[in-house]
């Protein structure tokens, strides 16, 4: 994975207020399945930076060093906020690198849902690196259907290929035949192919 797009865990630690750091140290001694769901109630949900809230940052840090089975399990039994935190964790180097491609089932699950937040979060750098091309094209088209702006897809425009352009063009033709507008962020790909 391209190292420049991943966040180091130390950067997240530095964002945390002291109270959240104290709780995190305590929570690391608890079972993950207890600490992970409780995190938001314990540390709050304040925004720390454009990309991170306190609960998400703490949940991601709880996953540093966790074996792949635990990460998959926490996602499997997570509510929407927990699932989002696991997806965000895959853009953090200290979580993503040791997992290699073992977290791919999580990305595939999130793409299958109809929850726009999960779909958008699934298409970060981890998906750019690990998601097979066919699944990537389908996910991009699903974003168009679900009104997820294409700007949030990390793999765009670099993973665009002729087949994706064809799928986008067919979609635009279908919309036009139905008398509906084509989303503006799709037009850009149709008029300036790679």
């Amino acid at each position: 994975m391209r190292p420049e797009v991943l966040t180091p865990a130390t950067e997240l630690e530095m964002l945390l207020p002291a109270s959240a750091r104290t709780w995190l140290a305590e929570a690391r001694r608890q079972p993950l399945e207890t600490a992970f769901p409780a995190a938001a109630r314990k540390v709050g949900r304040d925004r720390l930076s454009p990309a991170w809230t306190t609960d998400q940052a703490v949940r991601v840090l709880l996953l540093v060093g966790a074996p792949a089975t635990d990460v998959l399990d926490v996602y499997r039994y997570g509510d929407a906020a927990e699932k989002l935190a696991v997806l965000h964790a895959l853009s953090v180097a200290d979580v993503a690198h040791p997992l290699d491609d073992q977290a791919l089932p999580i990305i595939e699950d999130a793409i299958r849902t109809n929850d726009r937040r999960l779909l958008a979060a699934a298409l970060g750098p981890y998906a750019t690196h690990h998601l097979p091309q066919h699944a990537f094209r389908q996910a991009v088209l699903k974003c168009v259907f679900a009104d997820v702006p294409l700007a949030v897809v990390d793999g765009l425009p670099k993973r665009v290929d002729q087949e994706l352009i064809r799928m986008m063009s067919d979609f635009a033709a279908e919309r036009s035949a139905a008398g509906r507008d084509t989303p503006a962020d799709l037009e850009a790909y149709l008029t300036c192919p790679p």
Binding site: Y77, A80, D115
Partner: peptide, 10 residues
């Protein structure tokens, strides 16, 4: 239960 804490709140 997963729907009650995930899909339905959405």
């Amino acid at each position: 239960f997963d729907a009650l804490i995930g899909w339905e709140p959405f």
